[in-house]
Amino acid sequence: MINIERLTLDQVETGMLLAQDVCNPNGTCLLSEGMMLSAAMIAALRQREVDYVMVSQEVPLTLEESATLEAGIRARIERLFRVAGTDPIMLKLRNTLLQYRLSALNKSNSPLKLED
């Protein structure tokens, strides 16, 4: 899961991804969203007296969280397709959507898998 946090320059580490553009008080954009912070960038921000930045971090889900999300995905798909019945092409779409959503869930959850 992606977690977005507001960190001060003392808390940020190199390699973190910016979740928002970093601008100085008069609105000039210094760094843009999506950039990976390097030591040089952090030093430059410090020089320009930027106090904090928004960063996004991948946080592995616990097994319980992951089971809750999976149940949510299944329930949502059940709801969307509730009147589709046994129409073969709708069943196929439904199955494709389920695999697609679950694989996205597993991908965002891979760090935990590795530890297991």
Binding site: L80, R82, V83, A84, I89, M90, L97
Partner: peptide, 18 residues
């Protein structure tokens, strides 16, 4: 509809023409 781009007005899949 499948990708849930509109979740407030409708959440019922329309049927697909084969």
């Amino acid at each position: 509809h499948m990708l849930d781009f509109d979740d407030r007005n409708s959440d019922l899949m329309p049927s697909l023409s084969v």
